[in-house]
Amino acid sequence: MTQQYETYGRLRGRVAVVTGGTKGIGQGVVLRFLKEGASVVYCSRNPSNNAENAALIEELGAAQRSQFVAADVGSKSDMQGLVAAAAERFGRVDILVNNAQGIAPLNPIQSKPDGDYSMTLATGFFHSLWTSQAALPHMQAQRYGRIIHMSSVWSLWGYRYGSDYAVTKGALESLTRSMANEWGKFGVTVNCVRPAGDSFAYKQFKAQDIRTAAESEAAIPMGRMGDCEVEIAGAILGLVSENGRFITGQVLNVDGGLWAVPPNHEPASDVDIHRGRAQAAVSVGEGN
């Protein structure tokens, strides 16, 4: 499904939990970690979302090292259950990648419903907090843990009409620093990745507005979006493996240089990257 890359068996013996692992970046992380030897527990809200992953994982011969959990990232008990499932099945929790993010339609601040802010914070900020809290006792007992939160360049420049998303990502970046300072003494590193990936959400956007998408890609210094499994998951692998052992409390742009090139603030305000999907259920556990 994707470009080739080298594998090294570097995560052999490690157990990873990935939220939103059936599409886009989350799927890239799940497959990359499995190919690198880890055991991986991942979730999506709807079991039918797992069909593609199940087939790919079967092909890898990694079915015994993986487990799908149907879980809603907007639910605290589901997130606690997800981490518990990993500990129960594989005996450890070494790595946590909080990838999922629900995404609401773009709307100006004056007309953005409170519910969109609540949903975006719950499925982004709170889900990451809940899984981290659930994973900590395991990581503390192991004296080893790697936590990755996911942010976005949307947190940087005040992109128009996605204030709920920007605010959520800003909260996650602050959480990254606080968590790194509080949990470093337990042997846990905490970092945040701002990807520019050819993610599920981005593909939806591109399908609706190919012109803006082409402009966005042209603006990236490397001239393209990153491949989820090769480039985005590759950097996450670096952070959670031995190379990343002294990197903590940081926000890493894995974006081909996009972070250094502030945007032209002219998105089409009517673009809803989840157009056609039920709004009350926007992509929780499926985004990115």
Partner: peptide
């Protein structure tokens, strides 16, 4: 990290 495949999409950072 920066010199290997892991860093293949990290720029100017």
């Amino acid at each position: 990290f920066l010199a290997s495949d892991e860093g293949c999409f990290v720029v100017g950072h």
